[in-house]
């Protein structure tokens, strides 16, 4: 009896994931069938004419996550290095706890702070500066042109980046601590500087797991909803500029789900959710596999 109850509880975990995927595929099927592969690439999203293409939302999800990764990866790496190599032993737990606090802040707080505090800063100072300094350049210029609204892809990307810093840095710190002390001490004994130990001993040893941590952060960034919904602007027009309002898969769902007035509209939003689910599943599975590799190697050698 007890065994059976425990077993069914565990299977439930598996079933939930399977059912979540299936139910969303089922719900999204009418839209996917109606628009076919064009659903993914079309940038035409018009509830009035019942035309739904996910292009703008997918583009927004990818671009805002890319900005977030550009910001979060180097900073997280720096924090992990600081916590494992630089900070005095007494400072480490305090700083680590503070960074973990950042991970505990609910995502809607990031969104609200973004809307009321960060957006004005972006539109008053940062974006005019970006437009005047980078806007005239060839190639990257179009990315930074347009009116400084404050709301847009760049702001969303930065807030997402701040959000995922604690996730990536805590994974990196954990795997850095897995490096056998003998390796580290041996290179110090050879006269290596701290930075050389990080670059030439710690990083090569933990490379796969570090990438795994980065993917974990990417998985978070792709699916994050509340932090970006506030500051993206829910625009369905494609725009190359990072300063213009955009959209993302999760923001589109959050903004429009309760307003969807036709079955096809609802189905298109659920299909968006299905796409998001598939993409994050792949990213998170890859992250997990990469992290497992280090754990396995660690188990073998010790």
């Amino acid at each position: 009896m007890f065994h059976a109850a425990a077993a069914s509880a565990a299977w439930l975990v598996l079933i939930v994931l399977g059912m979540a995927a299936l139910s969303m595929l089922w719900g999204g099927l009418p839209a996917l069938r109606r628009f076919g592969f064009g659903f993914i690439f079309s940038t035409d999203w018009n509830p009035v004419t019942r035309q739904f293409g996910a292009g703008v939302a997918i583009y927004g999800t990818l671009v805002s996550s890319a900005i977030a990764m550009l910001l979060a990866v180097p900073v997280s790496f720096g924090i992990a290095v600081f916590l494992t190599e630089v900070a005095p032993a007494r400072v480490r737990p305090v700083v680590a706890a503070a960074i973990e606090l950042l991970a505990g802040v609910p995502s809607i707080i990031y969104g609200m702070w973004g809307l009321f505090v960060f957006v004005p800063v972006m539109s008053d100072t940062i974006e005019p500066w970006l437009t005047s300094s980078l806007g005239a350049l060839p190639l990257v210029g179009p990315l930074f042109s347009g009116p400084p609204l404050g709301i847009g892809m760049l702001t969303a990307g930065i807030i997402l980046g701040i959000m995922i810093i604690p996730f990536i840095s805590s994974v990196m710190r954990d795997v850095f601590m897995l490096v056998p002390p003998q390796l580290r001490e041996a290179s110090f004994a050879l006269g290596a500087t701290r930075w050389e130990v990080v670059r030439k001993v710690v990083l090569p040893y933990t490379r796969t797991a570090v990438v795994g941590g980065v993917f974990l952060g990417l998985g978070r960034a792709l699916g994050e909803t509340m932090a970006v919904t506030f500051v993206l602007g829910n625009a369905h027009d494609f725009s190359l500029s990072l300063l213009m309002p955009g959209n993302s898969i999760s923001a589109a769902i959050a903004n429009e789900f309760t307003e969807a007035d036709s079955d096809l509209y609802l189905s298109a939003l659920i299909a968006l959710g299905f796409l998001l689910f598939v993409v994050t599943f792949i990213v998170l599975a890859a992250a997990k596999l990469m992290l497992l590799r280090l754990a396995r190697r660690d188990g073998r050698t010790s």
């Binding site: 994931l17 969303m24 999760s250 998001l276 689910f277 994050t280």
Partner: peptide
């Protein structure tokens, strides 16, 4: 199951919302 559980752990919560809606 551990693998799937870890994925659920970081899965986007909006997806869970859609699932429960359905």
């Amino acid at each position: 199951i551990r693998f799937v559980n870890d994925i659920l752990l970081s899965a986007p919560s909006i997806v869970i919302g859609l699932f429960v809606y359905e």
